[in-house]
């Protein structure tokens, strides 16, 4: 089934659809699709409207391949409402991929990234949108990982519109690791929604998720993260943590961790905290003469930077911390 047929079969997202529970679905304009789909791939298993939208809209596809053992730093930029990028990362390759802002100011923008990571490859994918003013933006990542590969995904969102990032990561062979670190710093009426499905399809696979939110005004964030550990996937490790600081009475966060585990010998954890700035830390700073507002900014900055400190030194880490400086 091609993407157009599948997206029409799914229909527009609804709040009672598990993948769109927290999203303001009424804000999605009804798309018009071409008569024929340019992509011949079979999408009959695809469940996410946002993953299908660029393909069903016949978005131009850019294919980029990184050779085995190569090292590359790349920047990707979509210049249209809809875009699709296919990245093939060779065995033992090292790649740093920054996704730049799409500046097309249309009512909706949707990008899809298919990332195929070869054995032993080490990949970082990151974006740090300084001010994404797109009214409605979807980014979908479909990542498959071979044995011993590592993918680190990191993002900062500080836009004014409504964004949704969805990730399906498939840890298909032993030793594959996926690490996801995201930060939302939102104000006004901005919204950021994250939907992740991590599939542990092999033994000794690891996934780590940390999502942090600093929410002011009447902004909203949501985190819908699922970890699925298959049968015979012994020694799978997974952790999921969401930390939110609500800076105003009108901001809100919704969190839905889901663990589907079909094997006994695994270690999977999840946690969620919602609070205000740490009162003891605030007292410490002001007791050294630092004014309250400055201390508040210092603590917010500290909370934000901590999201990325554990990452190994890399182009991505440097860029993300630079944005927060």
């Amino acid at each position: 089934m091609d993407a157009i047929a599948r997206i029409k079969q799914l229909g527009m997202p609804r709040r009672n659809d598990e993948l769109w529970t927290f999203f303001p679905v009424s804000k999605i304009p009804a798309p018009e699709f071409p008569d024929a789909c340019a992509c011949e791939e079979d999408f009959s298993d695809e469940m996410d409207f946002a993953a299908l939208l660029p393909i069903a809209s016949n978005a131009r596809t850019m294919v980029q391949s990184i050779a085995d053992n190569a090292e590359e730093i790349a920047m990707l930029k979509c210049n249209n409402d809809f875009g699709r990028t296919v990245l093939n990362i060779g065995k033992n390759a090292k790649a740093s991929i920054e996704i730049l802002d799409n500046k097309v100011l249309h009512p909706i923008c949707a990008e899809r990234f298919d990332v195929n990571v070869g054995e032993g490859a080490d990949v970082e994918i990151f974006f740090a949108n300084p001010a994404n003013d797109l009214p409605l933006a979807f980014r979908h990542f479909h990542i498959t990982q071979a044995a011993g590969s590592q993918v680190r995904f990191a993002s900062i969102e500080r836009g004014n519109g409504i964004s949704r990032v969805s990730i399906d990561d498939f840890l298909n062979a032993p030793g594959a690791k996926f690490e996801c670190r995201t930060l939302n710093m939102l104000g006004g009426t901005a919204e950021s929604h994250h939907r992740l499905h991590i599939y542990h399809n092999a033994p000794e696979t690891t996934s780590t998720q940390l999502s942090r939110n600093l929410l002011d005004g009447s902004s909203r964030a949501s985190y819908d993260g699922s970890v699925i550990v298959g049968a015979n996937c012994t020694k799978a490790l997974s952790s999921q943590l969401v930390n939110t600081i609500l800076l105003s009475g009108d901001s809100s966060v919704s969190v839905k961790p889901v663990l589907k585990i079909y094997h006994d010998d695994v270690e999977c954890t999840h946690g969620n905290t919602v609070g205000e700035l740490d009162a003891e830390q605030m007292f410490y700073l002001v007791s050294r003469g630092i004014p309250q507002e400055t201390a508040k900014r210092m603590l917010m900055s500290s909370f934000a930077k901590e999201t990325f400190y554990p990452l190994p030194d890399s182009v991505g880490k440097k860029r993300l911390l630079q944005v927060l400086a």
């Binding site: 003891e280 830390q281 007292f283 410490y284 700073l285 603590l299 900055s301 909370f303 930077k305 400190y309």
Partner: peptide, 8 residues
Amino acid sequence: YPTEIPGV
């Protein structure tokens, strides 16, 4: 017990 403030 001086307070720890990682990130600052």
